[in-house]
Amino acid sequence: MKTFLTTTAVALALAGAASAEGKLTIYHWFEYIPQELLDKFSAEYDVEVTMDTYDSNEALLAALKAGRLGSYDVAVPGDYMVKILGDEGMLDTFTPEEMPNLGNIEDQWMDVDFDPGRKSSIPYQWGSTSFSVNTEMYDGPRDSLGLIFEPPAELAGKINVLDTSGETLTLASMYAGIPQCTSDRDQLKALNALVQGAKDSWASFGSDVAKDVLVSGDAAAGMIWSGFSAKARSEGAPVEYVFPKEGMIVWMDNVVLLKDAPNRENALKFMNFLLEPENAAAVTNYAQYTAGVKGVGEFLDPEVATSPESNPPADVKGVFVQACPEEVQVMYDAIWTELKK
């Protein structure tokens, strides 16, 4: 039996250990990067690419905390999560010499407060979070977040919300006019009461299903990211993305260099590769958000460049999600748990 165990161990080690060289392991949002682009990188740099996916910034953090740090080379956290990962010491830094294409970054995304001077991250795509309706199923007025948080009777049981406390509670706060990361008791109680009251009308919590439920008609309205909604529309579904009068969440996803990356060199090559306008545009064409890189214009599909989802009216207010301090975050966590009990 000993021999057999040894053989198995060796076989498993071999199966796992093609990882020695020419590898890159990415931890990425789901349905966001086209396989062709990964193949292109693979071919150009002779690197074998493996990718895992997650469906929320919080899930990314949880996985890294639970022993995955040191297994991945790069990840794609949203703005506030870059700050959290940085504060947790989970990011590595690079020098401008290691990232020749650093100059391609659009000026407004260069000196961001979640990573001043872009020492650990590069911009990937940015977009917004709001909600969409399936206009075949609901044709009433739709200009307010109230459709999600104080829904009319006809939408009851036909709403999907994102399964992430950060975005869902932030949108709820915007609707209720409550500032983010508040520690004011009455405001938190009001927020709690708002989502508790809305929950009965919600059919499901799901981020990865957000598009499918709207396309298939399982939901008539649902929180969703701008590009994801655009994809639903380009698949031919009557899905309309709404810019609510209360405002929406604006976010930027960033490619970060993770600490203890097993293939740091390839990670840097990959990040630099993504700063090429043509490659950044390939992601935009696929995921239908907006790139943070100069010169992508000529590579964009016209219908993506002019999509209503990516070109909000000028008067829509957009805010970034903030990373709350611990003593405040626990209260938001409590509201979330209470909501899902």
């Binding site: 949880a62 996985a63 499901s204 919590f205 799901g206 966590d333 979330w336 748990t337 899902k340 009990k341």
Partner: peptide, 22 residues
């Protein structure tokens, strides 16, 4: 169930894989 109501299994899972992180 649409991940809408916790059962014991999902409550525990959330602590390690979700936002709660406790």
């Amino acid at each position: 169930g649409g991940a809408k109501t916790f059962m014991i299994g999902s409550l525990i899972e959330e602590q390690f894989k979700g936002a709660a992180g406790n």
